[in-house]
Amino acid sequence: MSAPERIPPRGLTALDLLAEGELTVRGQVREASNAVLFCTVAHGGERADCVYKPVAGEQPLWDFPDGTLAEREVAAYAVSEATGWDLVPPTVLRDGPYGPGMVQLWIEPDPSPPPLLALVEGGTAGPGWKAVGPAETGDGRAALLVHADDARLRRLAVLDAVINNGDRKGGHLLPAPGGRLYAIDHGVTFHVDDKLRTLLWGWAGEPLPDEVLPVLEALGEGLAPGEPLESRLSALLTAAELDALRARVRELAGTARHPHPSGAWPPIPWPPV
């Protein structure tokens, strides 16, 4: 199974392959709440594995307009790409065997990565870990949910705050060979209300790393009317959602701190993993 670094050859990019290749459905990811199809995509003698989420397979949500999750996934990729952090695998919106939908490059995870999440009995996060909140072990004992104090996760926490991710679970983190970290499942993003729900609250209230402020400045510039990023996102999001995105970028840059939970919603998604 192919990671982005293994495509292209001969000038064929991952996005070209995903957008123009022939999709063949190989199976279904059964655990997902929406239709998630495992596919191969082939074009110009090249082939890769990918995920296809048709709009027709999206389950209605009370707080998001019907049939918009695929567009939000593509918008999350566009913002991730604009940061230069490339945390979201290449993702396109295209027609497929079951109609229009999102197609994303399949990432084969590292089979034995260092842990990013843990439950710690005793109530204290040790060195190299950040506390999220109380939890229970499988046998009902009290524990503390922690995540790694990892620069890749911290970038992801910033990206999630920017795109207003309402569902950052542990199972959405994909450590890949070579130390890369990818994140998937961005359908419930870009809402106009604060919907941020995540397992990555360990930096809440802390100053943003120095590298983040120039990224936020560049994002703000890219969201100006007529800029390539703004034009790309305006085809995927509503004008109100774009305005809310601009406001979140300005607020993060202004406070220069990781946000706290709003208190309007449960801060951690369920199930958390």
Rank of each mutant, 00 (worst) to 15 (best):
143 A>R: 02
28 Q>K: 15
140 G>P: 08
224 A>Y: 13
221 E>Q: 06
136 E>W: 00
47 R>S: 15
43 H>V: 04
21 G>D: 06
174 L>I: 14
156 L>S: 06
28 Q>N: 14
99 G>S: 08
215 V>E: 01
101 G>H: 05
33 S>N: 14
98 Y>C: 10
127 P>H: 11
245 L>Q: 14
159 L>H: 02
269 P>T: 03
100 P>K: 03
35 A>N: 04
248 R>F: 07
191 H>K: 11
52 Y>G: 05
8 P>G: 15
67 G>R: 13
164 N>S: 07
84 G>V: 11
12 L>K: 03
154 R>A: 11
204 A>G: 01
128 G>T: 08
195 K>R: 15
93 L>W: 15
68 T>W: 06
73 E>M: 04
175 P>M: 02
16 D>T: 06
136 E>G: 03
176 A>E: 11
16 D>W: 06
46 E>N: 13
68 T>K: 00
146 V>Q: 01
244 A>P: 01
196 L>F: 03
140 G>M: 02
263 G>H: 03
264 A>K: 12
105 L>D: 05
90 P>S: 04
185 D>F: 04
94 R>A: 08
225 P>E: 10
187 G>W: 01
102 M>A: 15
5 E>Y: 13
250 R>H: 12
175 P>N: 00
5 E>K: 11
172 H>W: 01
232 R>Q: 14
264 A>V: 14
55 V>T: 09
